[in-house]
Nucleic acid binder design. Sequence first.
DNA 1: CCTTCTTTTTGATATTTTTAAAAAACAAGC
DNA 2: GCTTGTTTTTTAAAAATATCAAAAAGAAGG
Lengths: 409, 409
Amino acid sequence: MNKLFLTEQFNDSISGVAYKSIHQKKRLLAYFAEHGPSAIGDLRRALHLSVPKVTALLNELMEEQFVKDYGKDNSTGGRPPNLYDLAAESAYFLGVDVHRTFVNIALTDFQKNIVKIKEQVPYTLSNTQESLDALCLLIKSFMKELGQSREKILGIGVNLTGRVNSATGFSYSFFHFEEQPLSEVLKDKLGIQVVLENDSRAMAYGEFAAGVVEQERNVLFLNLDYGIGMGMVLDGQLYYGKSGYSGEVGHMPVFDNNIICQCGKKGCLETEASGWALEERFKTRVRNGATTQLVQNQEHLKTIDLEAIIQVAESDDVLAIELIAEIGEQLGRGIAALINVFNPELVVLGGSLAATGDYIRLPLLSALNKYSLSLVSNDTALKVSNLGNRAGVLGACLLVQHRFLATKA
Amino acid sequence: MNKLFLTEQFNDSISGVAYKSIHQKKRLLAYFAEHGPSAIGDLRRALHLSVPKVTALLNELMEEQFVKDYGKDNSTGGRPPNLYDLAAESAYFLGVDVHRTFVNIALTDFQKNIVKIKEQVPYTLSNTQESLDALCLLIKSFMKELGQSREKILGIGVNLTGRVNSATGFSYSFFHFEEQPLSEVLKDKLGIQVVLENDSRAMAYGEFAAGVVEQERNVLFLNLDYGIGMGMVLDGQLYYGKSGYSGEVGHMPVFDNNIICQCGKKGCLETEASGWALEERFKTRVRNGATTQLVQNQEHLKTIDLEAIIQVAESDDVLAIELIAEIGEQLGRGIAALINVFNPELVVLGGSLAATGDYIRLPLLSALNKYSLSLVSNDTALKVSNLGNRAGVLGACLLVQHRFLATKA
DNA sequence: CCTTCTTTTTGATATTTTTAAAAAACAAGC
DNA sequence: GCTTGTTTTTTAAAAATATCAAAAAGAAGG
């Protein structure tokens, strides 16, 4: 058994005892990843194995440095069990969260801790080979700054906006220059396995695995930015749909207006309930003479952008707060529909607009009561992301880890 | 090993080799249920077991009469493999599909064949103890008519409209008279394990397991009747949501009208795109002088109901067809939203309105092109149910079978 | 009709895994 | 501080399972 048996994940042809061993070990590691420090007894029950077998597996994993003995647990009356958990420094995962004007890069260890993070690294995303090369350069320079952990990086997770098919590794909205899937192209350039993911889905996973989500197994995550994206965790699993295009809530036809959406259609949720709509409305109101902290005279009008509006909202700008509440109220219409369809346990508000906290959450909540079936919406909690703008990178890292520990059937 | 080891499903405490054996056998049976006749080689690969082990398990299952040897497969060049499959007559499942004015009851064998079916048995569903007792009586009298198959019924599936939590066995909209879950109450009355399910979900499962669905793993099933229900199969699993209330698409707020929905809100999808809306519009049009096969004079107006409209549509009544097309078009608005959210491989139209076939499907299809993102909707096929009004009963039967064969982890 | 080729099935052996019993580790009470 | 009770861990024997080689069962071609 190779020390890096984890990388065997892409080898499907193994069978018999070799497969079984890898499978069992992965299940153990996945259990640790989900439940934290555990005793042999817990593992036995969860994996349906005998105690001696678990002991043997743990010994192997400890030999291979993936697992550590974390000492005794509090006694429950008799002999206290030994606790085991993942060895933090045995493997690392790199996450790259690509935005339109910047990139977040982070490295996490095997225990999901952020080892190193660089946020808001300037970068311009465009659908060109140069932009792709620049991204690779950024990643490489980040890796250069790492110590011995560099050799232990098992995989790199990359979040992109738009249409991403995580299973095949294809990105269609950006960097689709070759016949090969982008994940392969990147793997060749960076020398490490690459997992591609849609940005909203990665954020959703971040919150699910290490964020505001606790025990909930059915969670909707809304990525509120200029547009509206959604990532879903259903029955404890990230949901992709047929080709990984799921979660396009921004273009749900819920309004009867005449605003032309970017997608070319009318009545989309995004036309009235997005950061884009917020910015437009804010500008219109200012033009019509509304007062705000943000603009003293018409000259400043062009400095208004979504980020600025969110910022002044935090310092209690009346106009910003009023308009954000409006957005929240209208968003409620869409989310109500989603709650009726999914009956989720939790809806998480994330993305840049979520930074406004209760300013958007409370109006949304009252809209939910108005639009969704009460019995269903009573089942559903509404929380604001607690990872904030780190949800994306963290999600990218953790998704790679998850991929490595995943075993089908 | 008891012959009826299948009933051990509710016993969670078994462990070790006993658990393993049951688990393995169930996996074998589940594989047969999903894939039909299979050779040892297929089973070996799918279950990650050795050939001698599979042989031994099959021998046991054949001893227990659950599996039969179905002779040789066509050779692929060498020795032809033996094919094995479920023994049809080894176990039976009873399904009860409860509607407001009638009940469908059916018995299926272990190979998913309908052994006996009674459709449209008159019955009045109301939320009273009498109605519940009457239902039990119907079921019992159906069972009395069965031969030796009666003793081999492993479980009874019951479909109810409204809010049903299949996991706990509680029904909230109907028959919630005791503290005990309704499934337990029924089990006590009927003497056999009962599985409760929401009607739309059961229909969805019926189509998924034995209907129009082929290889697709992400399927939305629409139950188009007076109201609109939805059942979803996501990643090959029936989706329930937190408490089993998922799929409430009828009350998605997508219109900007002033029609008050049954749920008390305005703008619901149901107000313009349901059987209820169809009937209302039909009546209004007739009142305003439109001509139709259905009504010669105003006297006949009260005989109009959804079923009648669907019937005359089939005999090419212009008004009916025109209005059904309208409904389809408006339904498209809602389904477009769902397609954007789920990126399903297939949307199945079921329920009584689906009997109108292309009359509803084609307008719906063109609306989909109008309202949903083309890239996403190109992924999605739209088909009409092929089980028709048997989807419900069959779904009920097959869901029970599925429950028995299900193994967690 | 026999030989050769391919693939499945069976059987014997080796390995893995479980079971059950013994040992070890700690808490609490005397 | 020792004994007893409880729970975990280790150990060795028993059971289950996989591997590998041999046999069997057809198909194809001469």
